[in-house]
Amino acid sequence: MSIQHFRVALIPFFAAFCLPVFAHPETLVKVKDAEDQLGARVGYIELDLNSGKILESFRPEERFPMMSTFKVLLCGAVLSRVDAGQEQLGRRIHYSQNDLVEYSPVTEKHLTDGMTVRELCSAAITMSDNTAANLLLTTIGGPKELTAFLHNMGDHVTRLDRWEPELNEAIPNDERDTTMPAAMATTLRKLLTGELLTLASRQQLIDWMEADKVAGPLLRSALPAGWFIADKSGAGERGSRGIIAALGPDGKPSRIVVIYTTGSQATMDERNRQIAEIGASLIKHW
């Protein structure tokens, strides 16, 4: 067993022997301040990774656009098919120029040779490549099948209805392509620590998230040296922004954090800054 596999296998073990965790309302004060600064709703939840206990939450059962955070769930569904012998990570998928959609920095470079399922998941999570996500959605049967996968996990809230990039439209009061912070946090925890996926697939999923290259201005910008984070960000229309993450000190994750916002007129930089400040408060009061 590799060191990384050992780390993920012992996530519940280490967490069980940690000192009790206590909620700190100071972080919620910052979440509410972010709402004021952005002029928009902000949803927040913080779960203990081992027990699933909610440590703090704000608007945990209000719907927010998922945006690209759905790509972690998508690759979880792909990995479940791999575990069941219905898919192979090494299978190569070929596609054409007509398949390319807006923001496809990886797939646009491989029109000639195609990409493997493993490479597509890596591109979808680490670079948020939209064509990679659409190609992977095709392998599982489309958005409705991802929703069905989530329902089978016990998540009857999260739903995907459309493809990239239309799913980022974020129309107010439109339930399409949305989740709730509580539902997303619980589902992410199941994917990373539950028995739904094999140990190898859980490790692969967290490795992809740990290698995320496009979430630097968010929670990662607030992390002290030595902290662990595996995350996936999302951005959408109407001032929408979000991030889902597993993080913790001492090089291992111990909490799940989900943050979503929508309806702001603020710039992307300002949305990023507010999420980073929430992260800084979380870490300060850990």
Rank of each mutant, 00 (worst) to 15 (best):
M1R: 01
M1K: 01
M1Y: 01
S2P: 09
H5L: 09
F6E: 06
F6P: 06
L10F: 09
L10C: 10
P12E: 06
P12I: 14
P12T: 12
F13G: 07
F13A: 14
A16D: 03
A16C: 14
A16M: 15
C18I: 01
L19I: 15
P20I: 02
A23G: 14
A23V: 05
P25C: 09
P25L: 10
E26L: 14
T27N: 05
T27I: 09
L28E: 06
K30E: 07
V31G: 02
K32H: 12
A34C: 10
A34T: 10
E35M: 04
D36T: 15
D36K: 15
D36G: 15
R41H: 15
G43A: 08
E46I: 07
D48M: 06
D48K: 04
D48H: 07
S51E: 13
G52I: 03
K53W: 10
L55E: 08
L55D: 04
E56P: 01
F58V: 08
P60D: 15
E61Y: 14
E62S: 08
E62R: 06
F64Q: 02
F64E: 01
M66S: 03
T69G: 02
F70Y: 05
F70A: 10
F70K: 02
V72P: 13
V72R: 00
C75V: 13
V78N: 02
S80I: 10
S80C: 09
S80K: 14
R81C: 05
D83L: 02
A84E: 12
A84G: 14
L89T: 06
G90A: 13
R91Y: 06
R92M: 10
I93Y: 06
Q97C: 08
N98L: 15
N98K: 14
D99S: 10
D99E: 14
E102M: 12
E102V: 11
E102S: 11
S104C: 07
L111M: 13
L111H: 09
T112V: 13
D113E: 14
G114T: 04
M115I: 07
T116A: 07
V117H: 03
V117P: 04
V117E: 03
R118Y: 15
L120W: 00
L120G: 02
S122W: 11
A123L: 03
T126M: 09
N130Q: 04
T131C: 08
T131E: 03
T131P: 03
N134I: 04
N134L: 02
L137K: 01
L137E: 04
T139C: 09
T139P: 04
I140G: 04
I140E: 04
I140D: 02
K144C: 12
K144S: 15
K144T: 13
E145C: 12
L146A: 06
L146Q: 04
L146T: 04
T147L: 07
A148S: 15
F149Q: 07
F149M: 11
F149K: 07
F149N: 06
L150N: 05
L150A: 09
H151Q: 13
N152R: 15
M153Y: 08
M153T: 12
M153C: 15
G154A: 07
D155E: 04
H156I: 15
H156W: 11
V157Q: 14
V157L: 10
R159G: 04
R159S: 08
L160F: 10
R162C: 06
W163A: 10
P165W: 05
E166A: 11
L167Q: 04
N168S: 08
N168K: 02
E169V: 11
A170R: 08
I171M: 15
N173G: 14
N173S: 13
D174H: 04
D174W: 02
E175L: 14
E175C: 12
E175W: 13
T178C: 07
T179G: 01
T179A: 03
M180A: 14
M184D: 00
T186E: 15
T186Y: 13
T187V: 08
R189E: 09
K190F: 08
T193W: 10
G194P: 11
G194A: 11
G194N: 10
E195Y: 07
E195R: 12
L196T: 15
L196G: 12
L197F: 06
T198L: 10
T198D: 10
A200Q: 15
A200G: 14
S201Y: 05
R202D: 03
Q203W: 07
Q204H: 11
I206A: 14
D207G: 14
W208P: 00
M209Q: 02
M209V: 01
E210C: 12
D212V: 04
K213I: 11
K213W: 06
V214Y: 05
A215L: 03
G216E: 07
G216C: 08
P217E: 10
L218H: 03
R220H: 04
A222P: 10
A222R: 15
P224F: 03
G226F: 06
W227H: 02
F228Q: 06
F228D: 03
F228C: 07
F228T: 07
I229S: 03
I229W: 02
A230V: 06
A230G: 12
G234M: 05
G236V: 02
G236W: 01
E237Y: 12
R238I: 08
R238L: 10
G239H: 04
G239K: 02
R241F: 02
I243W: 04
L247S: 02
G248F: 01
G248C: 02
P249W: 04
P249I: 06
P249S: 08
P249G: 05
D250M: 12
G251N: 15
S254D: 13
R255G: 02
V257M: 05
I259K: 00
I259G: 01
Y260A: 02
T261N: 03
T261S: 10
T262H: 14
G263T: 05
S264N: 07
Q265M: 12
T267D: 14
T267R: 11
D269V: 13
D269C: 11
D269T: 12
E270N: 08
E270D: 15
N272A: 05
R273A: 13
I275D: 00
E277H: 08
E277R: 12
I278M: 09
I278D: 00
G279K: 00
G279M: 04
L282P: 00
L282C: 11
I283W: 07
I283Q: 07
I283S: 06
K284W: 10
H285T: 15
H285E: 10
W286T: 01
